[in-house]
Nucleic acid binder design. Structure first.
Length: 161
DNA sequence: GCCAACGTTGGC
DNA sequence: GCCAACGTTGGC
């Protein structure tokens, strides 16, 4: 069954791994490890090669969408869940049925400017974007085609006065 | 299955 | 660093 390109948003702390770090990585590629939330994991598992992803900077000044990446490898087990002592070690995960997956992404391009959370929230058309919700903690989530287009268009515009 | 306690996230 | 919001855990 054919399926169009879908759109997603993934959060990262730029102090740990920023969009610029992704663009500077070998092949502009990175394995997106460390997701330890079931809803976010389910989104990872639903991603398909070629899907587009906004890379969102969290715990940043300001927080916001920094750039665009694409999925280049679909979900596969995150090896850090099996590494005792690792921050993301999960003693309950079974090798035969790993709890946590990751995908590989490749950086495509930075947005013309960082779209801050404040600006995203001020856009009525983006009111239902998950990252705009109060208390939103989901580190990976879908973005509708309309939201995606809106955000790309906004980023091309000059920052409002 | 309920729900209080706890740990984490993340904006500010 | 604060603290609200949220997800997870575990006692019952």
């Amino acid at each position: 069954m054919a399926r169009g390109r879908q759109h997603w948003l993934m959060k990262t702390e730029p102090a740990v791994f920023s969009f610029d770090d992704l663009m500077a990585a070998a092949g502009r590629k990175a394995a997106w490890d460390g997701v330890r939330n079931y809803q976010a994991r389910n989104s990872l598992r639903a991603m398909r090669r070629g899907d587009l992803v906004f890379i969102y900077h969290t715990n940043a000044a300001p927080s916001g969408i920094a750039g665009i990446a694409e999925v280049v490898r679909e979900a596969y087990p995150d090896p850090t869940q099996f590494e005792p002592g690792h921050d993301h070690f999960d003693p309950r995960s079974k090798a035969q049925a790993p709890s946590w997956d990751m995908v590989d992404v490749r950086g495509i391009e930075a947005l013309p400017r960082l779209l801050s959370l404040e600006e995203l929230k001020s856009e009525p058309a983006l009111a239902s974007l998950q990252v705009c919700q109060r208390g939103s903690r989901l580190s990976v989530h879908p973005v509708s085609a309309a939201e995606w287009e809106r955000i790309v268009a906004l980023a091309k515009r000059k920052s409002r006065p």
